[in-house]
C-alpha cells in the first residue's frame, strides 16, 4: 500500500510538470453500474481527470456484452483519447478492444483483465490477497496449531486462487508439522450463515481445539466469529478476512478478528485515472510508474500492468481506513473499551 501511495504521488508529481491541459477526453465503459462499489471508483477517477483539466465521460453496459460492444463503438466515434474498460466478458470484449487499437485510441483494462498486448492492465494483486492473509496470520496471529480453513464458493475461481496464495505461505509450517489443517471446507455462496454452521461443526469435531481460522472473506468471518463467540473463544482465536467490511473493521478493533485485507477501490480509481491522463498526453505505458510485465491470464498474453498491493488492516493500522474516509472513527470504535486500540483512544 505504501508503495502504491508513493507511486501515486510520484505519478501525480510527474503529471504536474507534463500536463498540457489541452482538454483530452477520458472515457470509461462500465460493465454494470448497479453495484455500489463502482460509484466509489468513478468518483476517484472523475476527480483526477477533472483536476487535470480533461473531460470525463462514461457508459454503462448494464451487464450485457452486446451493450458494451455498442457502447465502445459510440465512444470511438466520439473521438475520445483513452478508454478504460471494465469488461463484462473478458473474451467477448476482444473485438471491441481491437477496434479501439485500430482507431489509435489507448485502452486500459480496469480491474477485470482482457488479454490484449496493446492495453494496460490495472488491478489489485488478487493472488496477493491470500498470501497477505496468511502472512499476517503468521506474523501477528499464530505460526502453529490447529488451523481451520473456511473457503468461499466452490464455483468461484477466486476462492481457489485465494487458497493457493494462502497455502503458498503456510506450506513450510504445514510440512514441518507446526500447522495442522483440521477443517477445510467451501461455503456455498460465501454465505455467512453457512460459514457459521461449518465453524460450529469444526469446533464440535475438534472439541474446540482450534487455534486459528483462515476465512477467505469478511462476510464469512462474521459467521466464524459468531460460532467462536458461542463457545467463548472469540478474541482468543485469530480470524482472517478481506473486503474491509465495516462490521469486520469493527471486529478488528474489538479484537475478535485479526485482519481484514482491504482493497481500496479509490486508490485503484486514482492510479488508473492518473495513468489514463498520462497516456492521453502521450506518455508511453512502459514509462508509467509501477508498470511491470504480467502474463498470468488464461491465455498467458504478456501485458503491461500495474498491480496494486492491497492493505492488510489490523489493529495497528486501523487509522488507514479512517484517514482514507472509508469508514468513520465511530463505526470502527463502536463498543471498543477505552485504551485498547490506539485510534479509538
Amino acid at each position: 500500500m505504501h508503495k502504491a501511495i508513493v507511486a501515486a504521488a510520484m505519478l501525480a508529481a510527474g503529471l504536474a510538470t507534463s500536463a498540457s491541459a489541452e482538454g483530452k477526453t477520458i472515457a470509461v465503459s462500465w460493465k454494470t453500474f448497479q453495484e455500489e462499489r463502482w460509484k466509489t471508483d468513478e468518483a476517484a477517477i472523475k476527480a483526477v481527470v477533472e483536476a487535470a483539466g480533461d473531460k470525463y465521460i462514461s457508459t454503462d453496459a448494464q451487464g450485457s456484452a452486446q451493450k458494451q460492444a455498442a457502447d465502445i463503438e459510440s465512444l470511438i466515434s466520439q473521438g475520445v483519447d483513452v478508454i478504460m474498460v471494465v469488461a463484462f466478458d473478458s473474451d467477448a470484449i476482444l473485438p471491441s478492444i481491437q477496434a479501439i487499437n485500430d482507431a489509435g485510441i489507448k485502452a486500459i483494462a480496469y480491474d477485470v483483465q482482457f488479454e490484449d498486448p496493446n492495453a494496460l492492465y490495472i488491478t489489485f494483486d488478487n493472488v496477493g490477497v491470500g498470501r497477505l492473509m496468511a502472512k499476517t496470520m503468521l506474523e501477528k496471529g499464530r505460526q502453529d496449531g490447529n488451523f481451520a480453513f473456511i473457503k468461499g464458493d466452490k464455483g468461484d475461481p477466486n476462492a481457489t486462487f485465494l487458497f493457493q496464495g494462502i497455502m503458498e505461505v503456510l506450506q513450510p509450517n504445514i510440512d514441518s508439522g507446526a500447522i495442522k489443517n483440521v477443517c477445510e471446507t467451501f461455503v456455498d455462496g460465501w454465505k455467512p450463515d453457512n460459514a457459521q454452521k461449518a465453524m460450529e461443526q469444526c469446533l464440535t469435531a475438534n472439541d474446540n481445539k482450534i487455534d486459528a481460522v483462515i476465512s477467505e472473506n469478511d462476510g464469512m468471518a462474521s459467521g466464524v466469529v459468531a460460532a467462536l463467540t458461542a463457545q467463548g473463544l472469540a478474541g482468543t482465536v485469530p480470524v482472517t478476512g478481506q473486503d474491509g467490511d465495516k462490521a469486520a473493521l469493527n471486529r478488528v478493533a474489538l479484537g475478535t478478528q485479526l485482519v481484514s485485507v482491504w482493497k481500496d477501490s479509490r486508490v485503484l480509481g486514482k492510479m488508473a485515472a492518473e495513468a489514463a491522463v498520462a497516456m492521453a498526453n502521450g506518455t508511453p505505458m512502459e514509462e508509467l510508474p509501477g508498470v511491470a510485465k504480467f502474463s498470468g491470464g488464461k491465455k498467458g498474453v504478456e501485458m503491461n500492468s500495474i498491480l496494486i498491493p492491497p492493505n492488510p488492516i489490523t489493529r495497528a493500522n486501523l487509522s488507514d481506513v479512517i484517514d482514507g474516509g472509508w469508514i468513520t472513527k465511530e463505526e470502527v470504535c463502536a463498543g471498543v473499551p477505552a485504551g485498547t486500540v490506539d485510534v479509538c483512544g
Binding site: 455462496g189 454465505k191 457459521q196 462476510g219 462474521s222 459467521g223 466469529v225 459468531a226
Partner: peptide, 12 residues
C-alpha cells in the same frame, strides 16, 4: 444468531 445481517443471509 449470526449477530449480523447481510443480503447473503438466507439466500437459497
Amino acid at each position: 444468531r449470526l449477530d449480523a445481517a447481510t443480503n447473503a443471509l438466507g439466500q437459497s
